[in-house]
Computed example of a mutant assay.
Amino acid sequence: MRLFSPRLMAQIVKELLSVLRDPKSRFVLIVPPLVQLFVFSFAATLDVRNVDIAIYDRDAGKWSHELVERIGAAQFVHRLLPAQSPAEFKKMVEQREVIAVINIPEYFSRNIDAGRIGKVQVILDGRRANTGQVVLGYLNNIAGGLNAELTTESRLTNESAVVNHWFNPNLIYRWFIVPSIGGILVTFITLLVTALSIARERELGTFDQLLVSPCTPIEIIVSKMAPALLINTVLGLFMVAAGIFLFGIPFTGNFLLLLISMVLFILSLVGIGLMISAVCSTQQQAILGTFAIGVPAVLMSGFATPVENMPTFLQWLAQAIPLKHYLIILQGSFLKALPPSEVFANAWPMAVIAMVTLTAATLFVRGKLQ
């Protein structure tokens, strides 16, 4: 088979037209991913803002007043709601009016003036566990700042521990989330485009024409692969450009290495999508198959939780997920100038996955054509 034989080029053109000739299809491929990138970049964040906190102050002394003032002035606090009794702040938590309660005992200021430790009780809404832990961290920082001003010993202790955040010194969460969301969106679009290709042929009744065509299974796979590779490479590059120019994320890596990694990533997804398409009879089944594969892949990719925290079996399974390796390259290319050795260490697994999935897809298609 010649690499660019006329019948192969004809098949590629047919596949491109089937995807792009319909205005609605072009709209679905272009507009929703871009809208989702902008929406998710601001919505998917672990930063906590505009929370309400209840204050049960039984001390009303100098230091309790100072603590309350500092909490009220914090950027993450929307309102401080005074509570007059335990029953009242319990009701606030039960009705989700507040995320936390600061219970200041009556001896708080007296203990501090006497040189003893001033303790307060923090009650968190356990139904919002992640948000509560973030709020607790913020409150600990406020209390630590106040504690550093009380005694010389505390001041020396706090100044002796200097914290530096490499690669993201201001802890801008969007610098992490935008590249990750770009990779996730490319994952779903690639799987969807390829999963619908053969299933669409079956629904339209044109799959039977492939049975009598002179095209080989490899040519069919290549023709199905080319539109997805082209469209999603352009989409992936646009996601990278949006991160750099629209969100102002510094790009410190090697663009050529990132492009090669992106192509390997998309090829590995194309193989998975074609296997889904080969075993599905309708486009509805292909869509369901895409989400059945895509959602677990995102959850196990390390996007939300570290892979190292998962059970050993899932850690091994995560190595077969292309998104896991691509996110390491993508995030590293943006923020830490990932060296070529690290890029290669995560690129070769995607190349192996691509070879395995494309080979399996070819066998599946050959089985359907016989």
Results as ranks from 00 to 15, higher is better:
184 I>F: 02
184 I>T: 09
185 L>K: 01
187 T>E: 08
189 I>G: 09
191 L>W: 06
195 A>M: 04
195 A>Q: 04
195 A>D: 04
198 I>N: 02
198 I>R: 01
199 A>Y: 06
199 A>W: 07
203 E>V: 06
205 G>T: 00
206 T>I: 10
206 T>L: 12
207 F>N: 03
208 D>T: 06
209 Q>D: 10
210 L>E: 10
210 L>D: 12
212 V>T: 02
212 V>W: 01
215 C>I: 12
215 C>E: 14
215 C>A: 15
216 T>L: 15
217 P>A: 07
218 I>H: 10
218 I>E: 11
219 E>C: 01
219 E>G: 00
219 E>H: 00
220 I>T: 13
221 I>D: 11
222 V>P: 09
222 V>F: 11
224 K>D: 00
225 M>W: 08
225 M>N: 10
225 M>K: 05
226 A>H: 06
227 P>T: 09
228 A>W: 06
228 A>N: 03
230 L>M: 11
231 I>H: 10
231 I>R: 14
232 N>Y: 05
233 T>G: 14
233 T>Q: 12
234 V>N: 02
234 V>G: 01
235 L>Y: 05
235 L>S: 09
236 G>C: 11
238 F>H: 03
239 M>V: 15
239 M>E: 14
243 G>V: 14
243 G>Y: 08
245 F>M: 13
246 L>G: 08
248 G>L: 15
248 G>S: 13
